[in-house]
Design a protein around this nucleic acid. Sequence first.
DNA 1: ATGGCTTATTGTATAAGA
Length: 254
Amino acid sequence: MKFATWNVNSLNVRLPHVLDWLRDSQPDVLCLQETKQEDVKFPYAELEAAGYHAIHIGQKTYNGVAILSRHPMTNIQRNIPNFEDDQQRVVAADINGIRIICAYIPNGQAVDSDKYHYKMRWLVALTEWLKTELVTHPKLMLLGDYNIAPEDRDCHDPSAWVGQILVSPAERNAFQNILGLGLHDSFRLFEQVDKSYSWWDYRMMGFRRNFGMRIDHILVSDALKSLCIKAHIDKAPRMLERPSDHTPVLLETA
DNA sequence: ATGGCTTATTGTATAAGA
């Protein structure tokens, strides 16, 4: 099966890119972040016509996540259970016996800001929930925009980013805590070219100069690890007119 | 360089992203 995650930075704007990409790439499952639309505006009909079931949880202007799937989805969960949150950042479903969790982890804005502390609380709640999910779903995959570059090699200029969000020790530690549950960064299960990133700033010609960060990830549980056969980043959508600032990250399993 | 884009909004400037 082929899985992917993509922060589209407004599905309203990016729907043509998404439909083209689904047609060309034929993933079984595509997780979207930052749909930035209420559910009544979500393009269920267009996606159904393209061959995809969809589940979505959204809000106006900010956040919003969706799972698109060629296969039926059951056991649907919206938001992290037992975590008070007015932001729409998580949707999950069982697909072909695999627990698929799509997450848009908070950005954090600036280290030690209120939003940063929210990010850290949010990561704790996510980690606690994952721990219980893994008990009942040994085959689990967590796809999304983590807003964390796990290591220095995931940042175009580590020295310039010291002490910033996306790379701060506390954020990286939170990422390691998730791995500690028995999850694996699928991208790093395979040999990759240096300076591989999933996001580039719109400003300063970030993409052309490859000033990017690898902050979108697909983590897999122990039970899925041995089934992984390929992981890569598809930079093509980032080269289109009026692109998202993120590009799709993919994983293929046997 | 605290931004140089891009998105969205009961807009005509502001907030937020990363």
